[in-house]
């Protein structure tokens, strides 16, 4: 791909999301979403490869449908109530439809099936963009409409997402599918809390983005996309693979690592809203996700797999260039928990 076209597409990717952020009118928000989708489609098919094309087609169909549904629901709302502003939605049918469309766009539970397959077909960098940057625009819309959506729908979608995200990943050996399911589970936690405390949902999205970035970048560094490749990746970068254990446990949300912070705050907020049983079930579904993260940990650094070669060949090749982002996000992934009060003060109060 020519660098000019590439730059143009990247800028359009940013433009689409920014337009959605900045808009208060549904049509503009929809235009932003469309620009965003249209810009990432050539990026996804950069390698003309059957799997990339298939992933792009599936992505295109779901995103176009979701965008059309969003516009349809907002038009209906306008016909019924005469209001085009995003945060003034009032008709329950329209808000429910928009919630489902946003769930389709984000890859939330009842309509999540495209997500693992699409990420599986892409390379790790595009997969990273898909599971971080592409979530931002729909999430911004979700933040604005969440107060008008039926709370039951939000709770059901959230709980189902954490459950399915944990359940679906159990049987996978492909890293990108596992990361897709982890994305579903994390977004489920955010949807669970978005009706009670939108800033908290934003904070957990931010932390999820940091954590998943370091996971994707680490896998990219060792260029591993399956668990088998991960098992032999320690020869390529021993330091990063041993840290990958901690990154994965942080994604799982174990206490001294950053990933515990959003879980803790979300559970606290749920209990504060007098929903201890919901908090309990949400916490239990996190155990399902923990199982596959733990299995990844076992392969990545806790066992040394039998090698077909007797010598450590990858030592002799030139090491792959570490992205400058990787050490930063890894540090943030591992050590942000003690800063929780400061972050809370910045984000919430």
């Amino acid at each position: 791909m020519s660098p000019y076209v590439f730059t143009l597409l990247i800028f359009n990717l940013g433009l689409g999301t920014t337009m959605t952020f900045a808009s208060s009118h549904w049509l503009l928000a929809w235009m932003g979403l469309e620009i965003n989708t249209l810009a990432i489609i050539p990026l996804m098919t950069r390698q003309h490869h059957p799997r990339a094309v298939e992933a792009t087609t599936k992505y295109f169909l779901t995103q176009a449908t979701a965008a059309a549904l969003i516009l349809f629901a907002s038009t209906s709302n306008a016909w019924l109530t005469g209001e085009w502003a995003i945060n003034q939605m009032s008709h329950p049918l329209a808000t429910s439809t928009i919630m489902l469309a946003l769930a389709l766009k984000l890859g939330l539970a009842p309509v999540h099936f495209w997500m693992p397959e699409v990420i599986q077909g892409l390379d790790l960098t595009t997969g990273l963009v898909l599971s971080t940057w592409q979530k931002l625009a729909p999430f911004a819309l979700l933040l604005q409409v969440s107060s008008t959506v039926n709370p039951l729908i939000l709770t059901l979608i959230g709980l189902l997402s954490t459950l399915i995200g944990g359940w679906g990943g159990l049987n996978q050996t492909q890293l990108r599918k596992i990361l897709a399911y982890s994305s579903i589970a994390h977004l489920g936690w955010m949807v669970l809390i978005i009706q009670f405390s939108p800033p908290l949902a934003t904070l957990s999205l931010l932390i999820y983005i940091i954590m998943t970035t370091s996971a994707f970048l680490t896998f990219k560094l060792t260029s591993s996309t399956t668990m088998n490749a991960l098992a032999t990746s320690w020869t390529k970068s021993p330091m990063m693979t041993s840290l990958a254990t901690l990154i994965l446990l942080s994604l799982a949300g174990l206490p001294p690592l950053t990933g515990f912070m959003p879980k803790w705050l979300i559970l606290q907020e749920l209990v504060k809203q007098d929903l201890p049983m919901l908090a309990f079930f949400a916490a239990m579904t996190a155990l399902l996700s923990l199982y596959f993260y733990l299995r990844l940990c076992y392969t990545v650094a806790l066992t040394s797999s039998p090698n077909t070669i007797t010598m450590l060949t990858p030592w002799r090749l030139n090491p792959t260039q570490t992205s400058p982002l990787n050490p930063l996000t890894t540090m943030l992934t591992l050590a942000l928990l003690p800063l929780t009060p400061a972050i809370l003060a910045l984000v919430i109060y």
Partner: peptide
């Protein structure tokens, strides 16, 4: 994990 929820309940 139930302990965490119970502690948060107590805190509340």
């Amino acid at each position: 994990l139930p302990l965490l929820v119970a502690l948060l309940y107590l805190l509340n």
